[in-house]
């Protein structure tokens, strides 16, 4: 018996060094980190649980039994969603009513505008920026490096410095009553172009040159060779563009200030939700804010959960700030 044991340990020693280590000592630090991470994540996820359970309980419950979050007094319901989508809000006693003092919520318009801003803006920007990145990497022209250095150097200047000028230009072009104004200032953004350019720079130049020998034009090379090769970086950049566009608050709020009916139809979901949350503080209407919060968070959450590997990879490798 004893002999077997020694033999066994000898065998494991000869196989690999790590196995002995595992046998000799329990990975204490690993277990400790598991426990700490578990507790931490449980605490950090709890606001999501409050958001989702809070949105699916009735307004009456939220006021009478606010502590019963997980198991609401009278069960789960979607009445909060029905009300805010129909532009109604509850009164103090939890009955549905259309309040005359507050402008009707336009969730349909807000969702559409947000989709336009996030998806449309991102797609157009990706095309414009990848064309420019191609020019910077594969086309030789005078002052190329100078132009690129100016673009990169301008990254020190924060976006806030240009918003007033942009806004004034948009007033004078008469675009302040159009949702086009949501996306056009983003088209001059440097950061995405810079990321795409660094990726394109890693593509071997021989590939492009041999394609040129075969008689391909630059446009054909761009669409047939470079774009398929660069789809990873385009995908990652697209995801960040989508989330950035969806979550943007400052610029849309500047464009359409004031809660007039015409303006409210131009708001994005973030501006509208900020209005809803601020209204919900005045009376007992937090339920409507939570329901709106679920609508606002769901698209980004779904995108994140589906593509989380790519997003985490992109964040860690490129060092982008979220």
């Amino acid at each position: 018996m004893e002999r077997n044991l020694t033999l066994g340990s000898f065998n494991s020693l000869s196989r690999s060094g790590t196995q002995i280590k595992d046998r000799r000592r329990v990975p204490v630090f690993k277990i400790v980190s598991f426990i700490i991470l578990f507790v931490f994540c449980a605490v950090w996820i709890s606001p999501f649980i409050i958001l989702f359970t809070g949105a699916f309980r009735s307004a009456q419950d939220a006021m009478t039994y606010p502590g019963q979050i997980i198991f609401p007094h009278s069960g789960y319901t979607i009445e909060q969603f029905e009300w805010i989508l129909a532009g109604k809000i509850p009164t103090v006693d939890g009955k549905e009513v259309q309040q005359p003092s507050v402008q009707t919520y336009q969730f349909g318009y807000w969702i559409m505008n947000s989709c336009f801003s996030a998806i449309g803006g991102t797609l157009i920007y990706l095309l414009v920026a990848s064309l420019a990145a191609y020019a910077f990497v594969f086309i030789d022209f005078k002052y190329r490096n100078l132009i690129f250095a100016i673009c990169i150097g301008s990254m020190v200047i924060p976006g806030a410095a240009t918003t007033i000028g942009n806004l004034t230009n948009i007033y004078s072009w008469g675009l302040n009553k159009s949702i086009l104004a949501l996306i056009i200032p983003g088209l001059g953004g440097i950061y995405g172009m810079y990321l795409i350019k660094t990726f394109f720079a890693g593509i071997p130049k021989d590939l492009v040159e041999s394609a040129k020998m075969d008689g391909y034009s630059d446009i054909q090379i761009f669409f047939k060779i470079i774009l398929p090769l660069g789809k990873t970086v385009l995908f990652v950049q697209g995801l960040f563009g989508f989330m950035g566009g969806w979550n943007d608050l400052v610029w849309p709020q500047m464009l359409y200030p004031g809660s007039t009916e015409a303006n409210m139809k131009l708001w994005t979901l973030q501006v509208g939700m900020a209005y809803v949350v601020n209204n919900s503080k005045a009376a007992d209407q937090v339920g409507s804010a939570l329901a709106g919060g679920v609508i606002a968070v769901l698209p980004v959450l779904v995108v994140y959960l589906i593509a989380q590997n790519k997003i985490i990879e992109g964040m860690s490798s490129a060092g982008i700030k979220g």
Binding site: L269, M273, V286, A289
Partner: peptide, 11 residues
């Protein structure tokens, strides 16, 4: 989005 987070922290 910070409005969604805002609704949670308001509650």
């Amino acid at each position: 989005p910070l409005t969604a987070a805002g609704s949670i922290f308001t509650l």
